[in-house]
């Protein structure tokens, strides 16, 4: 066990522990805050695994944007401040499937890698990752930008109830407009 292994173990324990709290807590807002801890531990994990740029993007986008959006949604849906009892469905099918998935994947990966030791590669700095993205992966990058634009338009259309309503219920429209 080297220092890197100990770090990975500790950060993994933090991530899994706060992940358990995210899916079991009775407080909506606390679930979002435990999600911050879990994503932060994963970002530190990426740093240990030499993925510098991914770690900082994780902090920026996940912890900075996605969790804030989720907390906004918690507030906009008038969630109660205290504990709420109606957050869960009966648990055993979910526990069966979730436990089965976790055990199956763990068995598969442990069997594949056992206790082998791997040298860490060169750090994934912004310069190297940028070279790869704009060298080998330009087309997926551009397709992703189109996807982001369409997701933006889709979110706007979804949140405007007057777009896409059937023509009959709109005043001043003829049948030919359908």
């Amino acid at each position: 066990m080297t220092g890197v292994d100990v770090l990975l173990l500790a950060l993994g324990a933090v991530a899994v522990g706060s992940g358990v709290l995210v899916v079991t807590t009775k407080h909506l807002v606390r679930a979002g805050l435990y999600l911050v801890v879990c994503l932060g531990a994963l970002a530190a994990d990426y740093l240990v695994l030499t993925a510098e740029l991914v770690a900082w993007v994780q902090v920026l986008i996940y912890v900075g944007a996605v969790v804030v959006l989720l907390l906004f949604a918690v507030m906009l849906t008038r969630a109660p401040v205290g504990a709420s009892d109606d957050l869960d469905r009966p648990g055993w099918p979910a526990a069966l499937i979730g436990g089965g998935v976790a055990l199956g994947l763990t068995a598969l990966l442990v069997d594949a890698y056992r206790w082998t030791v791997v040298d860490l590669p060169d750090a994934g700095t912004a310069e190297r990752i940028g070279g790869q993205i704009f060298g080998s992966w330009v087309l997926p990058f551009e397709v992703l930008s189109v996807l982001l634009l369409s997701a933006l338009v889709g979110a706007v259309v979804l949140s405007r109830p007057d777009i896409g309503r059937p023509a009959a219920s709109r005043p001043g429209r003829t049948e030919a407009g359908r």
């Binding site: 993994g12 469905r89 436990g99 976790a102 598969l108």
Partner: peptide, 24 residues
């Protein structure tokens, strides 16, 4: 670096996510 540690972390997190999607 022993890769089995982050791999097992990821497997457990995925199981937790599947449990949460079905339970909540």
């Amino acid at each position: 670096m022993r890769p089995v540690i982050p791999y097992v972390t990821a497997a457990l997190l995925f199981g937790l996510g599947a449990y949460g999607v079905l339970r909540r």
